[in-house]
Structures are given as C-alpha cells and as structure tokens.
Design a protein around this nucleic acid. Structure first.
Lengths: 254, 254
DNA sequence: ACAAAAGTGTTTAAACTACACCCATGA
DNA sequence: TCATGGGTGTAGTTTAAACACTTTTGT
C-alpha cells in the first residue's frame, strides 16, 4: 500500500466519521529561552510546515476536538485552550499553490467539500512538559520562534498572527503566566514572558512591584543558581489568589 | 403546496446551495428608551422565538453570510458585526423538546446532518434605523429587552447571554457608542447606554468629565427639548478622534 | 577584579472616586 | 411653583511611570 493509497484511505475515514467542511487549527504557544514559541508540523516529504489541526467527529464537541488534537500533539491534557477566530473566507488561501507545495495529489473526490471553514484555537502550554509528536500527515513536530517562522501551508501564517494579536489583547485577563511558565520560575523569567508577548521591554522595578503586589506568587526558599550573577529567587503561583485576581481583572500589564 | 411542502423545498435548497452542518446566529443589539434590546423572530405558528440566523453559501465567506442575514433582517448595511463564539457542542440543545415546540416535522432526511455547529455573531445597530423583517421561517420580527426575553428555541438563550458577556468585556475597545446611538444624542442618553450594557449606574459628573475629556464628541448648537427639565445639548461623534481613541484603547468605562 | 543580572524605593504625574448644588424646562 | 433631570468642580486617593545604585555570583 503506497503512501498515496494510505492518504486516500485516511481522508475516506475522515469523510465518514467527521463533520465535513469544518476543521480546526491550533496555535500552541510555549515559552523557552526568552522567546515565545509555536508548535508546527512538517508536511511529509516537503519543507512546508503547518499548524496542528484536525476534524470534528460527528458526535464530538468542537472544543473537545481541539483538546484531542492538542493532546495528540503535546501529550498534555487539561490545557488552556481558547477559541479566537473563525477563518471562514470562501478562498482562504491559494489552493493550487498549496497543492503544489504539498507535493501530493489531494484526494478531493465526490464527498469532499471544496472549501473548508476552520476554527482557530490557541493554547498555552508549559514548554518543558511537551513531547512534540507528529501526526499521520507530517514527519516532524517542533517549536519555532514566533518571529522566525518557516514556510507555512494554507493561511496558517495569518492564523498565527491573529492568534498572537489575540494573545496580546488577552494578556491582561487570561492566566497566561500560569500556563506558559514551568511550576517554578523567577520573576525576571516571568518578565521575559510578558516582554515576549508584548514585544517590548518592561521596567524591572515596576514589574517586580506590580507582580508581587498582586499576591499571586509565593516565594520559595530555593534560588536559581549557576549563572555569573546574583541568584534570583524561585516563585510559584498561588492558585487561589491567582484565580481571584483573574476574576477581578487585576492582572494588567500595559 | 402546503407550508410543510414549502419547508421541505426550502431545506432542500439550503442543502444544495450551502455548507452543511454549519450555521450562524446573530445577536443584534439595539438601544431604545434606556434599555438594551435584542432582535428576535417568532417561529411561524408558535409562541416560540429565536435569533436571526442562516446558512453559509458554498462560495460565500462566513462573515459575509452574517452580513447578509443582518441586512435581510434589519435593512441595514455596513453594520458593526463581530464573531464572538462558536457553539460547537455535539448536543447543543434538547432536539426533541425543540421540535415539539416548533410544532412541525423537521425535514431532516438523508443529506441533512444531525448536528449543527453555529457561529455566533453580535451586531450593534441604530435602533431608529432598523426595519425589523421576518424571514421564511418566522412571522414576526421584533425587539426585546435583554432582561425580558421570551421563550427561546434551541440554545439561543445561552447564545444571547454569551453575547452580552462579550459585549460587556468589549465595551472598552469597541465602538459601541458609535454604533448603537443615533446620529445625534445627549450625554445622559449615552450614559444610559453604558449603564444598560454594564448593568449598573454610573456617576453623571464623572461620566461627563470622562467622555468629554476624550474629545470624541462634538457639541451641537441644538438641544433636546420637550421634557420638563433643563434641555440637554445634542452631540455627535467626531469620527476621526473616535477612531483614534479606539486604536489607543482609551474608551474605558469600568 | 570584573562582568552580568538581581533586587530594591522614591518622586511625580495622571487617573479615578466620591460627593452636592443650582439651573432650565414643562406641567 | 413644583418636580424632574441636566449641568458642573474639587479634594482625596490610588495607580502608573520614570528613574540608579548596590548586591551577588561565576569566571
């Protein structure tokens, strides 16, 4: 059975079990080494990348489908996952161009619709806990700097940019720190995250004052050592206070 | 040809021309007599109401489809129209209960999917310019106070509540005043709008100070007369300054 | 000892909150 | 003349922004 045969069989299964004409794409954000990252898949046999995505089973809620895709690609459950935009243009991308770059005949026969509406989700995950896992259509799954994206199929470049815009807007009301940071972290590391999302530097004294003033962090006795400078304290989130601050809309950094 | 026959033919046309399994629902907000209103349709031959909605033509963008539905129901073009949530649960509502209340056999035959995903849009319109117009499935189209909704089909009650929540959150960054107010209005009238959306009273002195301080309003020489008290000045939005304030995120009333 | 980042406090300006009286109008 | 809501200012408090030096650590 050739790959092309397998592909046709794969799409037949999808057409049978899933809602046709609707897909979802997940922009999975992580944070590592002062950079905001996004998880991408490399299309088999090409140098083209795309977002993790999938279809919605006939008896499955769309949010659950997004959770499933995310679990399959990262190994994580109970992620912070949020709808952000429905990409519903009749001609979202240049189909000819994409097929050519995908280097394979797309098995679009009778039942397959000739336009797909895609729901965009973004997820915030702890980079250190993710096991990037490719899917049937891809051979590599890996992280990319949001500022240094490779060649992307479909309209996925636009989807990432809309996700990033949304993330910036929601920085103040969403538990972005909690979901993107590892369990223990230093205040300067958290500041790097906010700077990476906002795309501009913040004043360390004001940041420190603000973040500690919210009482959402607990300072541990440990410190992060090993660098040629003063060892910063490690902190972790105080969950009850964090939730409270979110509800009250206090997590503001403009 | 009975209504039931027409209905079957109607759904056949939809199944032929539109994307199957996806619909859209529009929560159309207006403002009148100090109250926030929403436009509803009465299902033919029943006392049940629902949101204006529709399907997406095969070659139409989803946003355009929402604009079309809105134009058909209100007579307005170029409305402020915004995606707010995808309602994608596999069992969004009790189907048996809904069919019974709709008092008609739903023509769900072979090609009709047994679950529908619906994209929620909200629109802000000038109440005074709207000509409510029923559609094929409804016999009445009219405004309701968001606080006094009638019996609603499907999950439309939930959809309205999610729309309202979104509207509250977006009050600060969306041109809500501009779209919901008539061309000329008084500052107390605008304050009533903000109070209606926020659901709580605002201090008139602070409101006046704030709104005039933004330089987004032009005071006209006219005043609104006819009431047994001091006649308030009429204002209109200064569009260039309004846009600027929106971009800068200055339209905040918490 | 040096380089590199962490930790910390004050001052100033802007924004927000609370609060009360007089005025114009129509009944 | 009375009832109703419109118009307006100030003081106190809170919040944000700007800004620099000392400490710790590893090399």
């Amino acid at each position: 059975m050739t790959y092309s045969d397998k592909l046709i069989s794969y799409y037949k299964t999808i057409a049978n079990d899933c809602v046709l004409g609707v897909s979802l794409d997940c922009v999975i954000f992580g944070f590592h080494d002062t950079r905001l990252k996004v998880l991408l898949l490399r299309w088999k046999g090409t140098d083209e990348w795309c977002l993790p995505g999938g279809f919605i089973c006939k008896t499955e809620s769309v949010d659950d489908a997004a959770g499933r895709v995310l679990h399959e690609r990262t190994g994580l459950n109970e992620l912070f996952l949020q709808q952000f935009h429905l990409f519903g243009e009749a001609n979202r991308y240049d189909r000819e161009d994409t097929w050519q770059r995908q280097k394979m005949p797309m098995p679009f026969s009778g039942s397959w619709p000739d336009r797909t509406i895609s729901m965009g989700y973004y997820a915030l995950v702890d980079y250190t806990k993710v096991t990037p896992t490719a899917d049937f259509l891809s051979d590599v799954c890996g992280w990319f700097d949001v500022g240094e994206l490779p060649s992307l199929l479909y309209d996925h470049c636009r989807i990432i940019h809309v996700a990033l815009q949304t993330l910036r807007l929601q920085l103040n009301w969403q538990p972005i720190g909690l979901n993107l940071m590892p369990e223990k972290f230093t205040i300067p590391e958290l500041q790097r995250l906010y700077e990476a999302v906002l795309g501009r530097p913040l004043d360390s004294r004001n940041f420190h004052k603000k973040i500690t003033g919210l009482s959402i962090l607990t300072r541990l006795d440990e410190r992060r050592t090993g660098k040629a400078h003063k060892s910063p304290y490690l902190y972790q989130f105080d969950l009850p206070n964090y939730q409270r601050a979110l509800v009250n809309g206090n997590l503001i950094f403009v």
